[in-house]
Design a binder for these strands. Sequence first.
RNA 1: GGCAGGAUAGCUCAGCGGUAGAGCAGCGGACUCAUAAGCCGUUGGUCGCGGGUUCAAAUCCCGCUCCUGCUACCA
Length: 563
Amino acid sequence: MSPSDTSGDAILVAVGWPYANNHLHAGHLAGAYLPADIFARYQRMRGARVLMVSGSDSHGTPVTVRAEQEGTTPEAVFHRYHQSFLDTFKGFGISFDLFTSTDTPNHIEVTQDLFRRMLAQGDLYEADQELLYDATAGRFLPDRYVEGICPKCAFDGARGDQCDNCGSTLDALELINPRSKLSDATPERRKSRHFFLRLTAFTERLTQWIEQPEHADWRPHVRNFTLGMLREGLIDRSITRDITWGVPIPLEGYESKRIYVWFEAVIGYLSATKEWNATNGTPEAWRDWWTDPKARTVYFIGKDNVPFHTVIWPAMLMADGGLNLPTDVPANQYLTMSGSKASKSRGGVVWLPDYLERYEPDPLRYSLAAAMPETNDADFTWAEYVRRNNDELVARWGNLVNRVLTITRRNFDDCVPEAPATLAPESLALLDRVDVAFDSVGADYDRVQMRRALSGAMEVAQGANQYLDARAPWQAVKADRDHAAETLYVALNAISGLVTLLNPVLPFTTQRAWEYLGHTGEVGAAGWQRMPVVSGTVLPEPGPLYRKLDDSVVAEEEARLGL
RNA sequence: GGCAGGAUAGCUCAGCGGUAGAGCAGCGGACUCAUAAGCCGUUGGUCGCGGGUUCAAAUCCCGCUCCUGCUACCA
């Protein structure tokens, strides 16, 4: 269903904003974009009015630094990766209604509007801040851009925010012999006037909100982490920086400063909703997602983003007044790559544009969904990818489709056979099992338990294989043609249900299977139910849904990773 | 340091109070429609260590060991 069709319940699928300083990798897909897409596809199928939005986070120090290194502008860096993101999402079928950026007039306007109102209400205030300044690079340094000797353990190499040796959380001003990571210069202390978010004023309201009974089933790592932050005490944070690449402060005399990304990027969820509705001729309809208390707003992010989505953004929404707070923030844990953490800055990563040059999107979607880091960090290995592709997609599911279509077309004149008026008990049992799966698998998708949903659907596929084996239509077709006809008719109908059940995870290949069954249109448009396969329908010639991968792929890809 | 999660069959993991499970790998079998796929059977574990609660603990409580992550002025 289109977000413009107002008949369904409104669900905002809000997805974390990727930082436009590099391409996306498999960790991004597993952590946020894939679960969001599966969820959105499922909700659309069951008739919800889904609006799925995100955009490039175009601002921030690393973008500026990268631009300087390359001798180009921050805009150029941002545009390059923004385009890369769009290509990647298209290639993997991540079905955004809108993927915009923080570099739009609309976003700047929405941000500045909220800034002004929060300032007027006293939720923001001005104060001096002492910071480290790199005179060589001509820039104030974020804590992470400063290194020095740890004041607690004397480790030389501690970063300004944290010492990797003893684990202490630091203030960059405490470092002994600080040096800039940008220029190696010794930074100097300078005062600068900034705006602060009065987070401390929201502690009580945030705590009450998190402790509401309907939030009891939030993922433990999200809920407990948030409660821990609230218990330990929030700290007012400065939300402006001495930089020139970012959203301008809407006041006179602040031309050398910008609103900082962590304050501004989360506003993107709201500004993107407004942008989509303005573009589609319904400028007031953004309220259906943001002010209707029945709307759900679900945020798909990696766990490193939790504080911004369960504390800072909710506080900003409370400050605004009438906007919906997050319904759920099903943050994922990390995807590790052959045992080590996937990272944009380090190597050992499966880059998504690179992947798409060699492989189809669905097998990676499948592998990542089957081992999604929902409760723990999950490890991605190429060996497991190849195994899942070959054993599960090719052998169990793809082969099921292929074998049934092949026998049917060969023996029944390329048509769906006639079924008897009364089906055998095992035939009814299989179809019933498929139909029941729509409830259980659907509930799992709805709860963002993608691993469970997928394994539930795949168990039904296995059941279909067992059914076929028990009734052996390849033999029956010689002795008892009606028996074989029933088997194939039932199997085709079971496959039809499976196509729909699997479509949120495997949108490309299930669409092809859908057409092999003689259906027309899109799987996603047919609703969350088993589409009957009708006797007499002509079945087109099928092709393999998946390609079997040779074991040598494992060694090749591991070599690329530098393992 | 604080917080969270984990430690279960060779491997990847599920189970989270009631006689140890799945997939893969291994072994055996019947079949042959299918991308030599599918199906059936089977080998294999004192569920990290030590205490405790209970008629009963992988499952709850306490302590310990090891692993991973997060710890909001990169996002």
